[in-house]
């Protein structure tokens, strides 16, 4: 059963109470290694991506690693 989440400030729906790793896959995040995840105000340890599950009304933020600047 789908559940409702807020992802990066927007209401969204996902397939159920899935793990953060599954959420990243479902939301087509190209490279999970290049993202940090904030779940309900807490930054998750990368190891928790496989264990922590999202629930109805959770607030999720995908924060992307960005370099840039003087990139050659």
């Amino acid at each position: 059963m789908t559940i409702k989440l807020e992802i990066n400030g927007k209401i969204d729906h996902v397939s159920g109470e899935i793990t953060v790793r599954e959420l990243l896959r479902e939301k087509d995040v190209e490279d999970p290694d290049m993202v940090s995840v904030k779940l309900n105000g807490t930054i998750l340890d990368r190891a928790a991506f496989d264990t922590v599950q999202v629930r109805e009304n959770d607030e999720v933020e995908f924060l992307y690693f960005m370099g840039g600047g003087s990139q050659k």
Binding site: M34, K38, I43, L63, G68
Partner: peptide
């Protein structure tokens, strides 16, 4: 580091040709 705990694995960092700005 409160937000980005550790650097991404070196192999994951996109090469410049894939990246761009």
């Amino acid at each position: 580091r409160c937000l980005f705990i550790a650097p991404p694995p070196a192999g994951a960092v996109p090469s410049c040709s894939e990246a761009g700005v």
